[in-house]
Write a protein that binds this DNA or RNA. Structure first.
Lengths: 116, 116
DNA sequence: AAACTATGACGCAAATTTACGTCATAATAT
DNA sequence: ATATTATGACGTAAATTTGCGTCATAGTTT
């Protein structure tokens, strides 16, 4: 899943990067948004909602499932997909903490020169 | 930068994915954290802080710079890097909105079965 | 001017991601 | 039982990312 050198970073950094990677493709963003917009789990062809082939969407679903961001349960012939909102909330907090730290001090204003 | 099919998604989805991709490697997370921890812009060898070769770090810096998340100004012999906190705040809001939407309704509790 | 230093540009190999077609499987319908 | 349907598994080609070495350039120092 990762390149060798990844191990040299902190667990926190790796975890944030892993979750960021999950959102690093518009299809996966769209899948999560779609599951959120449905107020419930959805069974059936999610691929029909996206401009990608069914198997490609399935692959993106597997990636999100591997990170446990979504859950899938077999419901007869179809599979029922749900967001794992519990985990999403945790990830949300990680991002909040990260951005909070990053935006805490005004290192550079957008137009001004650096004050080195 | 992107695969062909990317164009089929909304600008919003693409923008979020693009920024998520910027954070999708622990080295880039570490770089942003490092620049944030310094309360000012930093000139000099950022690579010395990371477990990667100088040129590899330089490459990650270029990626962040290409997205305008960081700025670099030549200061004599060294380059002075700063966070673009203005943009970071915007990205923060995008993520906040995304996660807010995603966690708004409890689709699945972590242990329970889906209520399909 | 010559040596030295910091940094980006360039090239390359290996690993990974993306996208999709084909096949296998399992449940449903006829 | 057989046909149909939904979905994952698998294979593959193309694109991209990662990591790093080497070279080029521009500013400093002596």
């Amino acid at each position: 899943m990762t390149y060798a050198k990844t191990a040299a970073f902190t667990t926190e950094q790796q975890q944030l990067a892993r979750m960021a990677k999950a959102l690093a493709h518009p299809a996966r963003v769209a899948i999560i948004q779609f599951l959120a917009r449905q107020k419930t789990c959805i069974s059936g062809d999610i691929a029909a909602e996206l401009p990608l082939a069914r198997t490609t969407v399935s692959q993106h679903l597997q990636e999100l499932k591997a990170l446990d961001l979504i859950r899938g349960e077999i419901d007869g012939l179809t599979v029922c997909y749900c967001l794992n909102t519990e985990l999403l909330r945790q990830v949300q907090q990680q991002f909040t903490a990260f951005f909070g730290e990053a935006t805490a001090n005004a290192a550079c204003s957008p137009d001004e020169a650096c004050a080195c």
